[in-house]
Amino acid sequence: MLFFIGRRLYQAALVMLTVALVAFAMFQYVGDPVSNLAGQDTTVADRELLREALGLNDSVLEQFGRFIFNAVQGEFGQSYRMRVPVSDLIAERFPATLELSLVSALIALIVGIPMGVYTALRRNSWLARSFMTLSLIGISLPTFLIGIFLILFFGVILQWLPTFGRGQVVDLGWWTTGLLTASGWKSMIMPAITLAVFQMTLIVRLIRAEMLEVLRTDYIKFARARGLTERSISFSHALKNTLVPVITIIGLQIGSLIAFAIITESVFQWPGMGLLFIQAIGEVDIPIMSAYLLLIGFVFVLINLIVDILYFSIDPRLRVER
């Protein structure tokens, strides 16, 4: 177990180093930082001073070392455009994205798992069939379209829900949350559903396929032949076995919820990381882009590590050393 986690940590460190290399390379290849910072009337001598001050004349290895040293401490330099430290910008935006992603992941799981189980158990009922049809629609509709439809219906026509922003937020000092106010929740509903639809349909189909597989196994047949109740067979025997392989995919999907909330955030003008990133691309604000890259890489690595540890707690076959 310790050996396993140790190896995973080592792999995680390698992945992060690679991501850092890409993030660092952006500074070198996507435009010249000095001409990004300096105005048109800066003299050549001033530019040279700036170059020296930013450490751009040092060797690449030295610069990379410094980059990593700073990144580990949460220091990503200054935004070219906004002239504030990138770490401050991220601290301001990250809570919004994380809250949105977690709420939508919860929606996807709470709705998706029971639907998946139902469609597997009652495969031929009309309700299961209509779930499957709906999930096909959910998978094929682009996210932004769902968002725009929701805005049109609930925001413009019915005027029940706000169409943009986070609503009122409460500042906890180190975290700003929209989960403590009514308007925060109201603003959360539409973006969270928009973001959840794709994941939900994926989970429904995944659970259904996996569960059908498990229901065909010998131990389920044996459980039936022992006269266990249908409820116990479906939920305590079959569902748990279904979840083992599904967890990996769900973990990765939650990672991609955080990483790719960009479209949803743009549609709803949600003040999160994705929106920040889109603006940074438009303005070639490399420090923000590279910090975003590193952060997302970190989130994925972290989630994968958690999934691996979860595996251990669910599947006893991995836990025991033979």
Partner: peptide
């Protein structure tokens, strides 16, 4: 009662 053929697959691995 019923006994199945393959003892490797007739028990729930997670319990």
């Amino acid at each position: 009662g019923m006994i199945f053929q393959d003892p490797l697959t007739s028990l729930n691995p997670l319990q």
